[in-house]
Design a protein around this nucleic acid. Structure first.
Lengths: 342, 342
DNA sequence: ATGAAAGCGCTAACAA
DNA sequence: TTGTTAGCGCTTTCAT
């Protein structure tokens, strides 16, 4: 049994309150909604009654009647191939931040997991009127599908990178600057053979790589393709990447990893192989998840402004829903210097 | 403006499909719901039309008419005093696990943040018919309030410890066993002065402490109250706890911390003070969050079966909603031995 | 096999 | 100030 219908639940409804208060449902409705068209005394009586009976208005019916809705859909795509479940702490924190931002604005949050390959399934909750719009975390490489959704007038805001010819609204960190900051820090520490860990097929990573290249160029260096490791977004990603890099038998003295999770698992793998961090290999991560500070060595990383991100995503979505233009936004990133990147 | 009403959105509805197909809405409804009372040819035509127009039934209206609902509320209380936002990776992972379990069962998940002091606000989404029941993560010390909710017939399942005279259903790890496993491991490693980090006012922590005491007793030892630090659930909790413990000027050779987050920040603080882990002080954590394996030293910890937990919480809630009894359950915990606890 | 009509729980004209 | 009535978009008797 899949507990779907509400049985003989006998929920109290407005008509009951009306009967008990000896007024019509209209009056109850008015009293409860704070209309000025009810006698003060009547209102008090109705409200008291409703409260004492713990009556709560049926939102579904109210929404239907009012054609309104205060629910926002939040979609976190998953990769069906790797069956990767929600696990990167950064995405998870983003969820928390969105929950807070939406609550602040009096909106509810409906979470859906959607197969990344069939992203338009994300629109289902909008098409069926469950939500007024969608916030999608994880742009991956689904630019095209997202454009189609936007073209179909689905109010959608995506956490990710701003891309050319983009029809949908994105909110994201300044990835180019982030990549630049991280790399400059490593260069300033005297590192010259800086490996890059991250799949540049993903727009955000591509931009970070661009920043990486810019910083190198400013020092008269060019990115060595041999020092690029696309890796995977799996939890063990860092270990695999380190192994792959070592297999190439090239010297390297630093790693710029595109997520803290990646950086941490990489450091762990390096240590297992007797490589000292940061002495032999300096590492800079990305995201500044909470645990970055407690890691050993404490992780130098590029902070993504997660609370601001949640608020910005919500603000943009609400603008879109109101029919206002919602230009894509880039939030500033900041280098947090700790020990791992020296 | 708070983008709440759906403007001139002109959503396609069943009547439109009916008109376009030249049939009545009854027929469209039947065709779409797979009733046997429609001509095969008509059904095909209607379905094709609906699909080509990307028509999607209005769930709100359907729910109202059918008095059904496939949405489950998930509530994560927050501490208004400390303004602590959703941050412990364990809770966050639980959210992910629940999202997966609910999606698997075809249910949607509505997230609310609720002030821990006024937990009955959690029932709001149930009272108003938004959700068929509630899963609450974070029992804290709100046993009484939870009992009241259950007494009010709100279908609710709580992640936490089973308590005497409990009217609501809990699903949780076996905390006593977990505490025992962790402590035994430390004892086996020759540690005798084992500090306990965690607020025993919280039922789960109290049970872990019980397991801790049991293990000590089995070795003829008694818990030293001086080695108990209630600490806080704030992110920096571990550091504060370590400081407090050091201030007491007592010898100790191990710490059992009631969350990995606590363990990690404690280790970080110990290291900052030049205390070697595990050589001088061995540490065992709790939860086995993903990063525990990458930490240095890799964290010995008690694993909470998070995927099973998500599924169990959902299964119990659906049982409750169906009016079936939902006995509280304890999921087995497992000690994951890594380096920090030696 | 199909349509007309009633009604899910609520709100908002319109009357009174 | 209050009640009556007509729907919101859908499903389901009950006729045909």
């Amino acid at each position: 049994m899949t507990g779907t219908d509400s049985k003989a639940q006998q929920r109290l409804q407005m008509a009951d309150i009306a009967r008990l208060a000896g007024v019509s449902t209209s009056t109850v409705s008015r009293a409860l909604s704070g209309s000025s068209l009810v006698n003060e005394e009547t209102r008090a009586r109705v409200i008291a009654l409703a409260r004492s009976l713990k009556y709560s208005i049926n939102i579904g019916a109210q929404n239907l009647r009012l054609k309104q809705n205060r629910t926002v859909g939040v979609v976190v795509p998953y990769d069906a191939a790797t069956r990767q479940h929600l696990s990167d702490p950064f995405f998870l924190s983003m969820l928390g931040s969105l929950a807070d931002a939406l609550t602040e604005q009096g909106f509810d949050m409906l979470i859906s997991r959607v197969d990344a390959e069939t992203l338009d399934a994300a629109a289902q909750s909008f098409d069926s009127g469950r939500v007024i719009g969608i916030i999608l975390i994880g742009q991956w490489r689904h630019h095209e599908q997202l454009n189609q959704l936007a073209a179909r007038q689905v109010p959608i805001v995506v956490w990710g990178a701003q891309l050319p010819q983009q029809l949908y609204c994105t909110v994201g960190g300044d990835n180019v600057a982030g990549g630049r900051l991280a790399t400059e820090h490593l260069l300033a520490a005297g590192r010259r053979r800086i490996a890059f860990f991250g799949d540049a097929k993903l727009p955000e990573v591509a931009q970070r790589h661009q920043g990486y290249a810019q910083a190198l160029a400013a020092h008269g260096l060019a990115p060595d393709p041999q020092l690029y490791v696309a890796g995977s977004f799996l939890p063990q990603g860092g270990a695999t990447d380190v192994q792959e890099l070592l297999d190439r038998q090239l010297p390297f003295d630093a790693i710029f990893a595109c997520s803290d999770l990646l950086a941490m698992s990489a450091i762990s793998a390096l240590r297992a192989r007797g490589v000292a961090v940061p002495e032999q290999v300096a590492v800079v991560g990305y995201d500044d998840i909470e645990l970055a500070a407690y890691f050993h060595p404490p992780l130098t990383t590029v902070r993504q402004p997660i609370r601001a991100a949640g608020r910005a995503l919500v603000a943009s979505l609400l603008a879109l829903v109101d029919g206002a233009p919602a230009p894509s936004r880039q939030l500033p990133t900041e280098l947090i210097v700790r020990a791992s990147g020296r």
